[in-house]
């Protein structure tokens, strides 16, 4: 498998993401600096990690969304390559308009850092076939700007199209309809605030995140 992890200035979960992908996929991901203008040929999977790109200046993810490499990521996403954005990666994907809506400051103004119980709302995406619909899973969250906002029309459309993939079981950050993760129209771009790469080994306290990466790998194997 040919995978890539993008690093922006201020990314700090890129190494965890690399370890998770290497562990599950069994091969070393390319590590790509955001100033690059090309991606390796024939990528199977691209991950945008968590962190605080550009120190969250202006808005979380806003500057990174305009990094040179993003033009290539948009192109790959449009080609159908699976793209995962976690936490700051989700914020970047939203700012780049690859996903609808925006991530605002948590409603209670506090940084939230704990295990989050999530309900899997759609187990048919290429990121979630290893889960069951309606299943409760546990994946850690750690963010200050995870309060998902979109207008009611957009929210209804997301719900209607099964694009809400993960929902918090308990109010976590003020997100509209407790949304924790969504996919794009094509189903190949997933943005989520919880960190699956922090739940891939029993020593992490749980392995539900591992199942997400395994789902991606299985979907790739099925289409290969």
């Amino acid at each position: 498998m040919n995978t890539a992890v993008i690093t922006f200035p201020g990314s700090n979960c890129d190494r965890d993401m690399v370890v998770a992908i290497r562990d599950v996929f069994g091969s070393q991901p390319h590590q790509i600096w955001h100033r690059e203008t090309t991606l390796p040929e024939r990528l199977d999977f691209i991950a945008l990690p968590g962190g605080f790109s550009y120190g969250d200046y202006l808005r979380a993810g806003a500057m990174a969304a305009n990094s040179p490499i993003m033009r290539e990521i948009v192109r790959e996403a449009e080609r159908g390559v699976p793209v995962l954005g976690v936490c700051n990666g989700f914020q970047v994907l939203a700012e780049a308009r690859l996903l609808p809506g925006a991530l605002m400051r948590n409603a209670n103004q506090r940084f939230v850092c704990r295990d989050a119980a999530l309900r899997v709302e759609n187990a048919d995406t290429r990121f979630t076939t290893g889960f069951s619909k309606g299943e409760t899973i546990t994946i850690p969250v750690a963010h200050h700007d995870g309060n998902y906002f979109a207008d009611e029309t957009t929210l209804d459309r997301l719900e209607g199209d099964g694009r809400v993939v993960f929902r918090y079981l308990h109010a976590t950050n003020g997100s509209r309809r407790d949304i924790a993760g969504i996919v794009n129209d094509g189903g190949n771009v997933l943005g989520m605030m919880p960190h699956p790469e922090r739940a891939i080994d029993a020593a992490h306290g749980g392995t539900d995140g591992r199942r997400l990466f395994a789902s991606v790998m299985e979907s790739l194997a099925a289409t290969a």
Binding site: L58, A62, M63, N66, A94, E95, P100, G101, A102, F149
Partner: peptide, 8 residues
């Protein structure tokens, strides 16, 4: 393109 996020 950058200074504002017109979604919000």
């Amino acid at each position: 393109k950058l200074l504002a996020n017109t979604v919000i």
